[in-house]
Design a protein around this nucleic acid. Sequence first.
DNA 1: CTCTGTTACG
Length: 430
Amino acid sequence: MSSRKIDVDIITFNIAINCCCHSNRVDYAFSLLLSAFKRGFVPDVFTYTTLIRGLLSQHKSAEARLFFTNLIKLNELQPNVVAYSTMINGLCKTGHTEMALWLLRFMEKSECKPNTVTYTTVIDSLCQHGLVDDALILQSEMMEKGILPNVWTYSPLIQVLCKLNRWEELSLLLEQMIEDLNISPNVYTFTILVDAYAKSGKLDDAKQIIKIMNERGEYPNIVTYNSLMQAYCSQGQMDEALDVLSTIKSKKMMPNCYTYNILLDAYCRELKLDIAMVLYRNMECEGLSPTVVTHNILLHGLCRLGKTLEALAFFYKIQELGHKPEIVTYQTLLGGLCKSNYVDKALSFFQTMECNGLIPESKTYNIIICGCLWNKKYNEASKLVHKMVDCGFSADAITTSLLQQILTKVQDPTLLAMHQKCLQSGNYEQ
DNA sequence: CTCTGTTACG
């Protein structure tokens, strides 16, 4: 555009910067910011908000925070509600809900009041972190301030109430949304309900929601159908699950990796690995590449059948095909190896995690320690606990009953101290 | 021109 002497302005730059950020090239975005400066344009609140979002989507949250605060200090940025909401969302997504809440409270006292989006963002984060009651309080607070919740605000609240089986409160909330505020549930809201019912074994309720969706023209999408499929699968109704797959195809929708992973996992749980493998090969024909989750499901399937060594061979085969294992992959195989009494293999396999750039989690240690104890390898178990401590894990990172078992055979002051600390913190049945 | 939500594995 510049070489053709077409006039550009800061908005042109903002659009291009936004483009770079959405293509995960914040570096290019910042180059464009420099060119804008060089050409005498003054970046505005849109420019900076976009760049902050770009940094956040690239997991550069510390940089985003610094950028945001410095711009304000230097008087380059007078944030509006969108700029604040963007920053608040970034804080939430990086686990800094406290800071997000602080910024929300700061806004409430300032000239720039939070809006529905701002509150929804924080409510969602509180729900995700299990702070449902705080989220519900925040939702009533916003209403008292005259900020009306919308269909987005209700989604996380509905989801978390379902997850906690707080069905009474769910129906009250749905009533408030639909009857009092006249907000119609949309595909997202309905899908959350289908999924919740699927996971709670309420197949009939899940089916009922699909019926309502079709009646109201909020047609189920691939995510909704995947959840419905999950509902059938968890009831062992595999023929009906396959009917859902046919429905998806008849509606000219494309099954995705989730669709196949749900089916594969269900067949693996029924120990029908042959069917799972047929579906696995079928994925490629549909233009779908299996993900690490697909492979984890199959590996777990092999382990369930006691075909642990085949699982190990499959692990190496998929690695040769260029698929990187994840922590779950290791945990699946470690669990399998331990259960098949290949604890020595498990121990050496455990050592290879770091070569793959994976840092064991507390759960990883608990699996292998459990395996050691199962095979009466108390000294190995004790060594692993020490390794955990060296890696900075605290006493509550290990299951108390495992510690107790080790202590019956190994005298170790460090372990004893940990055990007592666990008992005090009251997480015995963790 | 900038902000919020749904599904799979240990």
